[in-house]
Computed example of a mutant assay.
Amino acid sequence: MSRSNRKVVPECAQALNQMKYEIAAELGLMTGGFNAGASDTEFAGELGGTGGSSGGQVNWSQLATRDVGFVGGNMTRLLVQRAEQVLKGL
């Protein structure tokens, strides 16, 4: 069985990457400040940065599988919540 992380909408890659870093920061997995590569983030005020080049990074290869799973699980939870909100408006 082959697994694929192919995105249905390839244009969303940057937004998903930003979300991944925001969630990692919320979980305390960032080193330094927040830096997801974008200047306007939803949680920038809570994270103590504006998304600029403050040096925050996640060394994904050195995180425990459980921590990376928390990030992915939270991403899924947020995406489902947002989809439900959109569908309720229809």
Results as ranks from 00 to 15, higher is better:
33 G>Y: 15
45 G>A: 07
20 K>C: 08
72 G>N: 05
60 W>Q: 01
87 L>H: 02
69 G>E: 13
84 E>L: 03
69 G>T: 05
84 E>K: 04
88 K>N: 01
50 T>E: 11
74 N>K: 05
29 L>Y: 07
83 A>K: 00
53 S>Q: 10
85 Q>T: 00
79 L>T: 00
47 L>T: 08
86 V>R: 01
72 G>I: 06
32 G>M: 11
25 A>P: 12
80 V>F: 07
49 G>S: 10
17 N>S: 11
26 E>W: 15
79 L>D: 03
49 G>M: 10
7 K>M: 15
82 R>T: 03
25 A>M: 15
59 N>D: 12
32 G>E: 10
22 E>A: 12
75 M>W: 04
43 F>P: 01
6 R>C: 03
2 S>E: 06
12 C>L: 07
71 V>C: 00
5 N>P: 00
33 G>H: 10
31 T>V: 11
9 V>H: 14
61 S>K: 06
30 M>W: 14
90 L>V: 02
13 A>H: 09
64 A>F: 12
26 E>I: 08
10 P>A: 09
58 V>I: 05
78 L>R: 02
15 A>D: 15
25 A>V: 13
31 T>E: 15
76 T>Q: 12
44 A>M: 07
41 T>K: 14
52 G>I: 11
47 L>G: 01
79 L>Y: 04
29 L>C: 02
67 D>I: 05
46 E>Y: 13
75 M>Y: 03
39 S>D: 13
51 G>F: 13
37 G>D: 09
45 G>K: 09
50 T>Y: 07
26 E>P: 12
51 G>A: 12
42 E>G: 05
45 G>F: 10
1 M>R: 07
79 L>C: 01
87 L>W: 03
8 V>I: 05
74 N>H: 08
67 D>H: 14
30 M>Y: 09
65 T>A: 04
61 S>Y: 08
17 N>E: 11
33 G>D: 08
86 V>K: 05
27 L>A: 04
13 A>R: 09
19 M>D: 06
16 L>Y: 10
61 S>E: 10
61 S>M: 13
29 L>N: 01
30 M>I: 14
15 A>C: 11
86 V>D: 02
35 N>V: 13
48 G>F: 11
71 V>R: 02
55 G>P: 02
84 E>A: 02
59 N>H: 13
70 F>V: 03
78 L>S: 00
3 R>F: 07
41 T>N: 14
54 S>I: 10
74 N>P: 00
39 S>F: 14
22 E>M: 06
67 D>E: 10
86 V>F: 04
19 M>K: 05
6 R>E: 07
50 T>A: 05
